[in-house]
Nucleic acid binder design. Structure first.
Lengths: 331, 331
DNA sequence: TTCGTCACTGCAAACGTGTGCAAGATATCC
DNA sequence: GGATATCTTGCACACGTTTGCAGTGACGAA
């Protein structure tokens, strides 16, 4: 079918090994033959077979990036960060999304293993702890981002981020503050909630479980969560959302209820996805260093690939980005 | 390093070929040995090598999906559609994004070729026409979505979609209608603009080049494009945007100028990304059958893989989704 | 002339798996 | 009991590369 190194060898009247060396610019091949063979290769439409190469070299120079969903706007910059440093070091990165389904996540990791990627980065895992058990078995390094349950991981300080958001709302005079959560199993959710509780506690405000609505990390869930909070009497005057997507949904629920942001309810998100600055009103949120998250994850993976004992568990700090979705309680 | 079929063979006291057959559930292997070997395989932590397998079978059972950007919300459903039918047919799909850079796009296609994927789907190509030249050389089937310049492609009828949007605005009484474009090289942009012009022409409204603002398909560009249109005297009373992201930016520009949607300016988008229904106000837009786009693309690829002569150039119709971002001119 | 050196190139094995063919073992039939 | 059919397994080669080592020829030096 496709032309191989042997075909070129035959055409050039040399051995396959010479062709291989010529194409890889081996020093002990004469300049003349190199040029001849390279010309022949393009003429014949030769495309080297990475699969044959990997079989003998035992490395693929690829890394697998597994993500919960391609549509997740939070991930775009993370992916960029990963690819950036991967490419700089000669690695290709292939993505695969598991649609927030732990079964698919597992299956994707296995597919990557079968294809013998040199390393794996997984973002926002649904399996988290399971990797510790897998670690030995899989034989290649793997680092998680947005998850601190695993030995090699890089994430943002969610507790600190939660405090940032809620402290800000408290500072504006709000005392009845809601939280719209996501899947309570997610460690990120637990930490942000912990930050929320901690901030309240320091002001001597008792934690009221009724004030935490349940979402799913997406707009739909945010809407439901907000509706849940609006049914309270009285409803909260400010709401901290698990992430920006949740805030999108929350804002829609408020609009449908005839309420306005920030006049009636103040809103704080998390992530600072691209959309946040363009929303109506622009969303106050806790920015995650998304690109840096990706860069650091890939750097850690490179260190592991090089056999270095890498610093485990990098934790980055987020920062509050104040826009227009909050107002003082008695302004 | 990792355990191979030979290791299992040695441990079981049989030949490698027996192990290979046992694991693949070959009918001519006794049930007893099959069970024994399978058990041994999991005990020893065996992971089959897709690369060795592909080398001999000459297929990888993977397809490469190349996209402009993971952050593009339009693509999420397209990807889902592709994966859906790919998985159903035993294919894995690996993604790679080229960040809207034709050079990277080319490089990714080559990487996929080297890794011997069985087929390639590319969405929103920057290379479009170049593939016709490549076609022969690459030796595997490749189908494009969102691009009609190539023999095998599936896309939405952009001209029809543009008409849908502008006809609607005309129907509401608007006559001074703007268009915020993206990169004029993009064929989708040209077609939507053509739909815009055609709709105007049929109502006897002369095309005014000043009424087309220049964006970039993202929020930033939409903002700039809108600012450009607002500088006109008089500004348009309604604006059709190349896509929803552009509309996001346009809305932000209007808000900053102290104008309101739809009271001061009506807005129509294109794509119907998930966000559109949640925006403030909810965005009227032309829905693309995104998931179907992906499904059809992958189906076409499967037909090509099977050697069938596939119907070339599938064109799907979009539909107008009326929400709250438009109002009658004299309401 | 002979030997050593140097610059190139080829041989052959290996990577881990799949598969056609033949061979061995066992059962079946006459 | 021998021939034949059936079931199970092994041999050997192939896939397309890379790479250590040996080999070839030319050329200069002794």
């Amino acid at each position: 079918m496709s032309v191989s190194i042997k075909d070129i060898a035959k055409a050039a009247g040399v051995s396959p090994s010479t062709v291989s060396r010529a194409l890889r610019d081996h020093p002990r091949i004469s300049q003349q033959t190199k040029e001849y063979i390279c010309r022949l290769a393009v003429e014949m439409g030769y495309t080297p077979s990475a699969v044959a190469r990997s079989l003998v070299t035992r490395r693929t120079m690829t890394i697998g990036l597994v993500l919960p969903s391609v549509s997740d706007p939070f991930l775009s910059q993370v992916v960029l960060g990963v690819e950036e440093v991967a490419l700089d070091n000669g690695y290709r990165v292939f993505l695969c999304s598991f649609y927030n389904d732990p079964v698919q996540e597992r299956s994707i990791v296995e597919a990557f293993l079968e294809h013998r990627v040199d390393g794996i980065v997984v973002t926002s895992s649904r399996l988290d702890t399971a990797y510790t058990a897998l670690q030995e078995q899989l034989g290649i390094p793997i680092v998680l981002t947005n998850c601190r349950e695993y030995a090699y991981s890089v994430s943002t300080d969610n507790l600190h981020g939660g405090r940032l958001a809620v402290d800000y709302l408290l500072q504006l005079g709000h005392t009845r503050i809601g939280y719209i959560a996501t899947d309570p199993q997610k460690q990120a959710n637990r930490s942000r909630l912990a930050g929320y509780r901690q901030a309240l506690q320091e002001r001597g405000i008792a934690f009221d479980p009724a004030l935490v609505g349940v979402g799913d990390g997406r707009a739909e869930g945010g809407k439901r969560g907000m509706q849940q909070l609006l049914a309270l009497n009285p409803p909260p005057t400010a709401v901290f959302c698990y992430n920006d997507m949740t805030a999108i949904g929350a804002a829609a629920a408020l609009r449908e209820a005839g309420l306005r942001v920030p006049d009636d309810v103040s809103l704080v998100g998390f992530d600072d996805i691209d959309w946040a600055a363009y929303s109506n009103p622009p969303l106050t949120t806790v920015r995650q260093p998304r690109r840096e998250l990706g860069r650091r994850a890939m750097q850690m993976l490179l260190e592991l690939l090089a056999g270095e004992e890498s610093p485990t568990k990098v934790v980055l700090q987020g920062e509050l980005v104040v826009r227009a979705s909050c107002r003082p309680l008695w302004g």
